[in-house]
Nucleic acid binder design. Sequence first.
DNA 1: TACCGGGACTTTTTT
DNA 2: AGTCCCGGTA
Length: 806
Amino acid sequence: MLSSDIEERPDEERPGEGHEAPQRSAGRYKLPRRGGADEAGSLHAQWRERLKDSLNQQQLEAVTAPAGPVLVLAGAGSGKTRVITYRVAFLVGAMGVRPQQILLTTFTNKAARSMLDRVEQVVGDSARAVTGGTFHHVANLLLRRHCELLGYDRNFTILDDSDSRAVMKLSRNEVGQVSVEKAFPSERLLQDIASAVVNTHTPLDRLLTRRYPHLMEFHDSIQRVLIDYQLRKAGANQMDYDDLLVNLLRLLAPELHGASAGLLGPEADAPLPPGVAQRDLDAVRREICGRYTHILVDEYQDVNHVQAEIVRRLYLGESLSAEPSDVGSRKSELAGPDSTDTADGGFVDLDVSASGFNTPQLSADSDLRPPTSDDLRLLSTDSTRGLFVVGDDAQSIYSFRGADYNNIRSFPDRFTDGHVFKLEINYRSTPQVLELANAILQDGDPLFRKTLRPVKPAGAERPLLLACRDGGEQAEFVAEQILSLREDAGLKLHEMAVLYRAHNNRLEVELELTKRRIPFVVRGGLRFFEQAHIKDLLSYVVVMANSRDEIAWQRMLGMINRVGPKTIADVLVKLRGPRGRFGRTEDDEYGGPLGRFTMNGVADSARGQAKTGLMELRDFLRGLRDEQLAGTLPASDLLRRVLTERYHAYLEVTYDNWRQRLEDLEQLIVFASRFDSLAGFLSEIGLSGSFTGQEIIDSGDVDDPEEGAVTLSTIHQSKGLEWRSVFVISVQDDVIPHRMTRANPEEEDEERRLLYVAVTRAEEMLFMSYPQVTETRDFQRIINRVSRFLHDLPGKPYDEAVLEWG
DNA sequence: TACCGGGACTTTTTT
DNA sequence: AGTCCCGGTA
């Protein structure tokens, strides 16, 4: 069996090692280049031989590339997943890398899971020790261990989009009294700004000038709001999605002290907690980098600045020196346009020895184990490190959240000792589909042009563009066509998908499918965990887990009759520790906000009905807390108690569709029962990419037996997926490219790539359609034109038709 | 004074 | 489905 081979394989036989030691010099890591030919007889060669059956030549070269930096430019449908999967298998099987040394980041958790399942089939059970998931997942994992060094409690809560908007609202109100009357940016916009500052590593003034010039007059107030937002989250022991990334980077980059990476000025960046020294951070950094010696990144074109820097630090981490601690503040001040590119940024050699390697104790419930003696040996004797990134700049579609395709473009310059491989053979689609896809790119920015070469035989038809009368007719067409594909062409429902630019494009199709009883699953839209009743129930549990979470308190208190914003504010003030903000739990003699609330003097200070309600809540929480302190109550039991003893009654009187919602809550409890720690459950929820309760329960492994269901998805969500037959609906101007991008050519070109992504999802059949007329809310009729991306494509690589019923 | 219910408006894409 | 604003009510 192969996996036992690996375990027993002595290190000195690892190919390419021992003959010629890798060389380090300032900032460069050189590795002797190895081909496959002179390796006859080695494990490496055996694996090459073995992989030949499963991979084409290009793929094989990429998979069996030497360690060090590797970039695989993989066109749509060219076997990217395959390559990354086999690379993991190859690292473990042929290069003797221990699975726990491998870190695999993918765009969704589902992708990571399915890749690792496949690796497991090739390599054996040991593959389970690979750490895999989204950047946010990995960050969460590492921060649960180490966040105390950054001033957080381990039970920090993760703010989802709506939570962080709620926090932003508080900050906005706090600061905004003066400016609110004017057209001061909404919470929503402020969120976007805060996120862009961090993810593109751009100082506020520069960001405003470039992207929101009309907001320049509010610069100072915005800055104050953002600083308040930053401090408020930290005070409440919360991290939003960006904080997860930035704080992970702080663990890896000793010179970045603040949670805003210095971008909002020293005010926003709390100093390290007392007692934490630079060398503690250094130790953690070395531990993390020592553990993960091989980093694999999927969809690299969609990483943002912070993620790219995380990747770089992980890969080079231990060869970066610990810079003197005062450098941080100096760097922060300098942080400007030019500091975004730190690729060559002055790191010097560090003596990589295991001596002085400080290993904090890790608990066993985590994926993270303390480095074993083997890990340490590897660190000292085996300096082979790997960075394997895979992506396609033609499919970069996430710049709105800070992704920057320049990261993939500049990879060869950043890592000059690396290798680049290109995969251009498309296995997915028919030549007709590819002809259209190529043409769409050909018409846009030359930098993104790609030519995919088909291997599939020609399909029966070219892609079809259908002009429908209106949205209703478009929906009818989709439904009818789905039925006829099922009956005449024998397609299963799960082999078809309907893709659209924005969620509201979906409604009519959804209606029509429902009417005809065609089963479908929706990806995207309202997230399961963001629905009111789910958040209501969770708020109790969040308060139990992190009683400093202001947002959860707000929500929980708000459910009490006759308690509104005013009463909530009063209570929250009383819950605060002596220092104004929600103090750290352990230095608070009252046991934090929860402790205060369960004592006399808080709940009973209100009057009237509010008082009664607050007292009831107090008694309930008292009981819950005592029980939780007595023995650890699993998350599911906790939820069950809240539901039966408290929330059920509220649910029934609040929502008319409470039956349905109750079912959701039951599902939630089932889901919760899979977790043994409350914190684990809550962070999974915060980070989950799953969208319906059912999907969460199934967690993707139950594929509907035969028929399945049609998939409805945004184009963004469809990335990386494929179907035999694909419908792209509402392909009119102002939808794709979206109206919002009209002013900005770069954004518009991203829309083009979005259409490219949509088209390349199709294996055999592609139907595009648009309504010729749409109605606005105020009954104005809009005449639509087909998307300019399709309008005058040279050679018209699709058939055009007007719908006729027959 | 604080809270509540009804009506208008919102949404580009996501971890 | 959620949020904001407004006028009515405890």
